[in-house]
């Protein structure tokens, strides 16, 4: 091959990695199946979609930029409370609620990123954990605003687009959550496949070298952390809007830990890892907690250990390796 055709081949090779794959189209078509197959489980389906969006937001910072966080629920909770408070004080329009929640979570995320961008590894885990606990406690003590442990009461949502009322069966809830998840996914997919996305992977792989090629790694980290926080805020707002309640649990440590588990389970840094992890985790919890509610964590613990031992890149990483071997 001449140099010219090899150069063209290089362009094509990069374009090929970005192309939509058939499996992706099938995945998104399959997200419509619950309407037909499990019409009585649409409420659960909507919760899965919301959790999947939350996991996707974590994937952006953890899977791509390598920023470990044990306090990501802080932004989920901020979004949840923003949407809830808006509605309680008379503004129940869902879409603008999402936008404002994203804004609030994004602004706080940006403020946090000024600190976050300076640290890595263990220090980062401690800082994000601390920030999460701090916000949880603040919401707990400010019960005049948040309702404290009783949760925020009096959330009343208007119809989506002035047309669709949130119904008891979760038909609107799932349609709405799925649409927002899909649009957010398109955004994240574009970010990941942009020069900025490449820079994020560079930071994850070797932040010292990033400096040596002239990159301001901190500026990149601040930006992606802000975007991720805003997306987590959207997920939180969705939960408020589809359930009409906000509890302190939205800010809790358990939520931060669980979303991390889902992402590791599905496979971090793979776009679909968080989505697949959320589907498996939430459906399994729904099934197992029906049978043996007490031992639910026993099973999820077993599953987690097994995945980390045998599929260090998560379920999707394992599948990719299997496909690669067969070729």
């Amino acid at each position: 091959m001449s140099t010219d055709t090899m150069a063209l081949d290089a362009r094509r090779h990069i374009a090929r990695q970005i192309r939509w794959r058939p499996a992706e189209v099938i995945f998104w078509l399959a997200t419509l199946l619950p309407f037909v197959l499990f019409p009585t489980h649409l409420v659960l389906a909507s919760q899965i979609a919301i959790t999947a969006l939350f996991a996707l937001s974590l994937d952006l910072i953890l899977g791509y930029a390598g920023i470990v966080s044990l306090g990501h629920a802080a932004f989920f909770g901020l979004g949840a409370y923003t949407a809830g408070l808006l509605s309680k004080h008379g503004w129940g329009e869902p879409l603008s609620g999402l936008v404002l929640s994203a804004l609030v979570a994004g602004i706080v995320g940006f403020a946090a990123s000024l600190v976050i961008a300076r640290f890595r590894h263990l220090a980062l885990i401690m800082i994000t954990l601390g920030m999460g606990l701090l916000l949880h406690e603040a919401a707990n003590s400010a019960s005049w605003l948040t309702g404290g442990v009783d949760g925020l009461q009096g959330v009343k949502m208007w119809q989506v687009l002035g047309q669709f009322r949130f119904d008891l069966y979760g038909y609107t809830a799932y349609s709405y959550a799925l649409a927002v998840l899909f649009l957010s996914f398109l955004l994240v997919r574009r970010i990941v496949h942009s020069p900025f996305g490449l820079a994020l992977r560079g930071i994850r792989e070797n932040s010292v070298r990033m400096t040596a090629i002239g990159a301001s790694a901190r500026a990149h980290v601040r930006k992606v952390y802000t975007i991720s926080a805003a997306l987590a805020g959207v997920a939180g707002a969705l939960l408020t809007q589809t359930t009409s309640t906000v509890s302190l649990e939205t800010l809790g440590f358990q939520r931060s830990a669980e979303v991390l588990v889902m992402l590791v389970l599905g496979g971090a840094g793979r776009l679909y890892g968080g989505l697949v992890g959320a589907i498996i985790f939430m459906s399994a919890r729904d099934q197992f907690s029906g049978i043996t509610p007490l031992y639910w964590y026993f099973w999820i613990g077993t599953l987690l250990v097994a995945v980390v031992l045998f599929l260090p890149n998560g379920i999707l990483g394992g599948l990719a390796r299997l496909r690669w071997r067969r070729r």
């Binding site: 990069i14 970010i191 496949h193 020069p195 500026a219």
Partner: peptide, 11 residues
């Protein structure tokens, strides 16, 4: 200076 661009595909 285009590494901050997140809205265009790298391709």
């Amino acid at each position: 200076g285009v590494a901050r661009c997140w809205w265009r595909s790298i391709a």
